[in-house]
Amino acid sequence: MTTSAIRVRGLRKAYAGVTAVSGLDLDVAHGEVFALLGPNGAGKTTTVEILEGYRRRDAGEVSVLGADPARPDAGWRARIGIVLQSSGGHDELTVQELVHHFAGYYPGARDPDDVIAAVGLDEKRATRARHLSGGQRRRLDVALGILGNPELLFLDEPTTGFDPEARREFWALITSLADGGTTIVLTTHYLDEAEQLAGRVGVIAGGRIVALDTPDRLGGRDHDLAVVRWSEDGRQRTERTAEPTALVAQLAGRLGGEVPGLIVSRATLEDVYLRLIGQPEQTLEVVS
């Protein structure tokens, strides 16, 4: 038994000479919810699919639940749940048929009816997969992913195309799985999703991890300068400062009381993320 659910050292993968992953290191502890963020083409899906046993690596050490995913066996697959980025297939079968059938693959499967209820598809059990909405289909994917009572669950962009309410419900489901001790690796484009679910966030860019921390400390977010905005002489003014209170007091004195249009804010996870992957954050006119 290793201490980490996932341990990656110096992972490399190239496609036809184009590097997708270049020397990536990663540790995910048992019971952790870990989010992997990164722009398209950063190596996110390549990394996750190497961990899932779908792709071969060119170099590096990888251990997932104590085994090398390049040599997956049925026992190892039974301990892992995978929700792929694309859902599809088995169109003519009903929710009930599919979940009961897939349960037969796993030696320690959960009760299929409980799982259908847990993902909120009770009303849709007699509906063929073809006729489910995008969100319902995704919940079916999750049902099939968690059926085997996995120790480790991979979720690749699970809520793409969800409406806000469905996303909240989905988050509650994932949180309850995490509370039950399931280790979860999540990739997502939604920063709020990572912030809501993950204990730690890794940002991947150019095939390596460029930042790794809890969502509130990622990229030095907790030490970030505050941004103070106000209106003066008919212009929008912005200043970054480590001492926003002092600045506001100074402004109040200079402008004689109430500061027009005053906003004091700190960088959002999205700001930090965009900075980390080398995109300019929202254009700021920086004074001083």
Partner: peptide, 17 residues
């Protein structure tokens, strides 16, 4: 079709022999 729509990939990710 099953290869294209991910059915096969999904099955490969399970312990199904």
């Amino acid at each position: 079709i099953e290869r294209e729509d991910g059915t096969l990939k999904r099955l490969r990710g399970t312990p199904m022999p």
